[in-house]
Design a protein around this nucleic acid. Structure first.
Length: 382
DNA sequence: ATGTTC
């Protein structure tokens, strides 16, 4: 692993290279979190960045108790990768943009929604209307195309044809996960839950429901977009990066929390760059207890949200922000969000993925580039 | 991040 895994203390490390942007505040949050009661080890991924009290882009292994606040409000957030039957080379960007339409509101196809809910074990409830919607923040759906193949065998083993248009969906459990965290924190604060107690079981049941909801939501977003662009598609992979699960590692039985950390023990995963950068499909290699069976979940934020508009609005108009250096298009009719999610606000994906490669954690399968990113149609249009 | 939000 060499110097790509930096030891911070006897129980904290961070995966990074010399070129990986790493905020001192995020590293400090990581070390602070490592001192929580029962915490055995924490591992910062190269996309590590500061969060609200706890860092994002990290995994945490504890024994005897676990911490819902470390998982955060977006329980079950993750990435789903789909392959469409459209040939990437014959896609007209204008036509794709037009056909994608508006998926900000609730789904009209209630039968499709009900079917997916049944398949995924999602009970009807107050959050039904958010199924099939992306939400805000860093969530998105993005059509992509393969631009470099590193391992053709691994790519075809996934059933991916490099000529086909891909669809990546990044979203989670919307208001449901938010409600689960809030009701937990209102009652128990941040001290965590002790193994085997009724309150721990109750949280885990709600957490499990949020994971199923999030998976169902990603599937419905994909199916909705596929229907709009008149394509068929198949899911290639779907992986949560915000959750807690029982785990055995480091010679102990405990709880592995992932907060913006992609599992390295569930097969190939896609690590997206910002909307103006590439994404990498990677094969996890040796599963390392030291880095808590985890990988980066994206590029990682470099600028805090509140700084983005001030830094960029003099340089670029919202219209200019709607195109990227890779030639892709961005649907984001929200003046604030389009600056907050600017490529400039994120770390370079190469610096993140190269740290994972350097640490011996992944091998590259393929690189993709964005074609069209959907955030929100906003107030206008349609 | 969030049926958020002055």
């Amino acid at each position: 692993m060499g110097n790509f895994v930096r030891t911070l203390s006897d129980r904290a490390c961070v995966v990074a290279s010399d070129t990986t942007w790493m905020e001192d505040a995020a590293v400090a949050q990581l070390v602070t979190t490592s001192q929580l009661e029962g915490m055995r080890r924490v591992a910062g991924m190269p996309d590590l960045h500061p969060g609200r009290g706890y860092p994002v882009g990290a995994a945490f292994f504890s024994v005897g108790r676990f911490y819902p606040a470390l998982v955060g409000n977006d329980i079950g957030c993750g990435m789903a990768l789909w392959q469409t039957d459209l040939k990437a080379a014959s896609v007209s960007l204008d036509k794709l943009d037009r056909r994608v339409g508006n998926i900000d509101g609730a789904m009209e196809d209630e039968a499709l929604r009900m079917q997916a809910m049944t398949v995924h074990g999602v009970a009807p409830g107050a959050h039904d209307a958010s199924l099939g919607t992306i939400g805000g923040g860093n969530h998105f759906a993005e059509f992509q195309q393969v631009d470099t193949v590193f391992d053709a065998d691994a790519l075809s083993a996934l059933g991916i044809d490099a000529k086909r248009l891909l669809l990546l969906v990044h979203t989670g459990s919307r208001g449901l996960g938010e409600r689960v965290l809030r009701s937990h924190v209102d009652t128990f604060g941040h001290r965590g839950l002790v193994d085997g107690t009724p309150e721990a079981e109750a949280y885990l049941a709600q957490h499990g429901a949020a994971l199923r909801y999030a998976l169902c939501n990603r599937e419905l977003v994909a199916q909705r977009l596929l229907a709009n662009v008149r394509a068929d598609g198949q899911r290639v992979l779907d992986v949560h990066h915000n959750f807690v699960a029982p785990a055995q590692m480091l010679g102990a039985t405990g709880w592995l929390h992932r907060k913006g950390a992609t599992p390295s023990d569930q097969g190939p995963v896609l690590i997206p760059g910002s909307r103006g950068d590439h994404s990498y499909l990677v094969q996890p290699l040796a599963i390392s207890d030291d880095t808590l069976h985890s990988l980066a979940h994206g590029a990682g934020r470099k600028w805090i949200r509140s700084a983005c508009k001030d830094r960029l609005f003099k340089l670029m108009t919202p219209t200019q922000m709607g195109r990227t250096v890779l030639g892709s298009r961005v649907i984001c009719n929200d003046r604030q969000l389009i600056y907050e999610e600017a490529p400039q606000a994120y770390k370079a994906i190469d610096s993140v993925v190269q740290a994972l490669v350097g640490a011996g954690l992944v091998a590259l399968i393929a690189r993709t580039k964005p074609v069209l990113t959907y955030k929100t149609r906003g107030e206008c249009c349609e």
